[in-house]
């Protein structure tokens, strides 16, 4: 019950932040756009039309696609990255806000362990972002269902995976927020790690060539596995919708793990270690 109080308070605080209100407005505009732009072709009664143009079922060179799945897939991929990117912006300041002088004393003087306090705060911040994302995704899902007659459950399910990805990545935001006690630093370092993680994803085909040295290669590997693998997890969450023909091009550049679940496993371990470090730091610190 005590942790729930902190959790609900954090969601409210996250939602009331200007960035998430802006995100809500943007999401509403996009939903409204889809509501007007999407329809089924009146000629054949089944082709998908966007702004009056039919989405073809082939992309040339003999590549066939399912138009609805293709649109949902592209939408999910771009919106998932947007959610993580924007979510960091929106809620990275929540941990430092809890640690502000005059506020932290109030929270720490309540009968709630520091572990519960930090985890309920992190979960609340993540949920605040996810609620906004759910609004966005469910809105699009309803439009496709009502106007095109396709109720794509995989599309909805992939949202839950994105939620998990955001919670795992938030471990870094939480740790940096605790150490620096600054929303600005927290955002900046989180983005650096986000970019670094994306860069290291292509290490075997690019960074390894910079220096043909085993120690250098293993160091890059260690850094890569030390942080949640956001890019891989987001890509794999899209598998719940379908396979994009563009993925074949990308697979030539990156190492493909033997199982799509492996990035989740590695990231889960990495996030657990980072959360544990954050809890330990928070539990030992004077305020």
């Amino acid at each position: 019950m005590r942790s729930l109080g902190m959790f609900l308070f954090t969601i409210r605080e996250a939602i009331l932040r200007g960035t998430l209100i802006f995100y809500f407005v943007v999401a509403t505009i996009v939903i409204a756009f889809f509501a007007f732009a999407i329809r089924v072709s009146p000629d054949d009664g089944k082709s998908l039309m966007i702004l009056g143009n039919i989405i073809p079922s082939t992309l040339g060179k003999g590549i066939t696609i399912n138009p609805v799945e293709f649109v949902l897939l592209q939408f999910q991929k771009s919106s998932a990255s947007f959610v993580v990117f924007f979510g960091i912006f929106a809620v990275a300041g929540l941990i430092p806000a809890m640690l502000e002088k005059g506020t932290v004393e109030l929270f720490l003087s309540k009968p709630l362990s520091r572990t519960s306090l930090l985890l309920s705060r992190s979960l609340g911040a993540t949920t605040g972002v996810i609620l906004n994302m759910m609004y966005f995704v469910v809105g699009i899902w309803l439009i496709f269902g009502i106007k095109v007659g396709v109720w794509h459950w995989g599309f909805l399910l992939s949202t839950l995976v994105v939620a998990l990805v955001f919670f795992l990545f938030f471990s870094i935001v939480a740790l940096i927020g605790l150490i620096t006690r600054s929303g600005g630093f927290s955002i900046m370092f989180s983005f650096i790690i986000y970019m670094l993680s994306g860069l290291l994803r292509y290490r075997t085909t690019s960074l390894y060539r910079l220096w043909d040295n085993t120690v250098f290669h293993r160091t890059l590997d260690s850094i890569y596995y030390a942080f949640p693998q956001v890019g891989e997890m987001l890509d794999n969450s899209a598998l719940l919708i379908g396979t994009s023909p563009f993925d074949q091009l990308k697979s030539a550049l990156v190492d493909q793990p033997s199982s799509p679940y492996l990035p989740f496993l590695y990231s889960f371990i990495s996030a657990t270690v980072i959360y544990a470090l954050a809890i330990r730091y928070f539990s030992k610190e004077d305020f």
Binding site: L8, R12, G102, E105, L112
Partner: peptide
């Protein structure tokens, strides 16, 4: 019970909501 010096409450809450928040943290 503790009243810290220079305490700061979330400015988006009302007085009643503030007390409800800290009451919840007490279970």
């Amino acid at each position: 019970g503790y009243l810290p010096e220079n305490h700061r409450y979330p400015s988006f809450l009302t007085g009643l909501q503030t007390l409800q928040l800290f009451g919840q943290l007490h279970g």
